[in-house]
Amino acid sequence: MIEVRGLTKFYGPVAALRGMDLSIPEGEIVGFLGLNGAGKSTALKILAGHLLPTAGSVTVGGVDLVAQPERLRASIGFLPEQPPLYGEMQVAGFLQWLGELRGLKRAVARQRTAEVMAQTGLDRFAARPVETLSLGYRKRLGIAQAILHSPRLVILDEPISGLDPVQIVQMRALIRSLRGEHTVLISSHILPEVQETCDQLLVLAEGRVVAHGTEEELRALVAPSLALEVEVRGESAAAIAAIERLPEVHAVTEARRRGEVVALRVDLRREGRDQVARAVVESGASLWGLRPVDNALEAAFMEMVRPQGAPNDREATP
């Protein structure tokens, strides 16, 4: 269990963290969300043992950061946004050296090096100098060094930034493979990525955790209503009229038209997907698709990180 209580960090007179509290259960993948300047990087650097807090406490498995910093650092793996790598070293040599530096015996470090290279798909590049690797493989090597010493907590700062779509899919699978074996804390500002990968989400704003829970729990905080996107082909006017007559429906608007297929946005007062589907079919139009409009997490995020006193977009809209 990772426990953070009252974590505060000042850079001179500037407060980066203002009494942050959080608890993270073992074995979960937790997304760390926040706008630039929210204090994410500072919090991650403190959790990784790179910085020390001005006030507050951090414990990982009961080990305190300030009282036993070296012992705590042995249980943490950290990948900053730019992977910290020594370019002149070979991939296997780098991992072997780092394993020994983190207290593994030489034979154990050799075994772990082989294991994490296989896990991260780096075994083909064992003898390659690090500086010759592409960004995607550097990120993999960054993750390999972070999990090398089997830490309880793995901290990944923007692990997919700068990767191409294929590399993103591979990285996502790699991160998911860490679930259970490690507790993983991922910082990202790419919401869909966090939705895809994480079990729980933490939202940070102005140096404090403003929300913590599963994706569904966060959605429920600000998005109680339901909207659907309904694609119909053929008699769209009849379909719209049929949908509008339903008591569950608040409003229907045409979102876009592509050839004969029209996409409708249907705002519901309450759950009514069955009724909408039946109304479309009975109107004589073809039902090509029906899915919830999924911007609820984004809306929740925007609501949570909105500075106190700032105008609410939804309230401001006439």
Binding site: G49, F78, Q82, P84, L85, L98
Partner: peptide, 14 residues
């Protein structure tokens, strides 16, 4: 400059 000092400062060494 290269950001590699973090490898040493986050290692379990003094």
């Amino acid at each position: 400059r290269d950001g590699t000092l973090v490898l040493l400062t986050t290692a379990p060494i003094s």
